[in-house]
């Protein structure tokens, strides 16, 4: 079982991207973690058909 990247993570400083609930990012900032809050929105403005097409195109 390859878990090298996990053990590598254990030896690094945590650097986090937060996609979604903002309070999670605030809590990490509070602990001195470098974190970037995304401005996530439903893909294709929430239009399911177009979103699934985009997903299939790998975007």
């Amino acid at each position: 079982m390859n878990v090298k990247p996990v053990n590598k993570l254990f030896n690094e400083d945590l650097v986090v991207i937060n996609m979604g609930l903002e309070s999670f990012a605030d809590n990490l900032k509070d602990q001195g973690v470098k974190v970037l809050q995304m401005n996530w929105k439903p893909p294709a403005g929430g239009n399911k058909k177009i979103a699934s097409l985009l997903a299939r195109l790998g975007r």
Partner: peptide, 20 residues
């Protein structure tokens, strides 16, 4: 605040974890 993950990784290239 980037909208796309591509952009997020560009801004924070040393990111090692994402909370979704």
């Amino acid at each position: 605040r980037p909208v796309s993950l591509d952009k997020a990784v560009e801004i924070l290239p040393d990111a090692n974890l994402i909370v979704i």
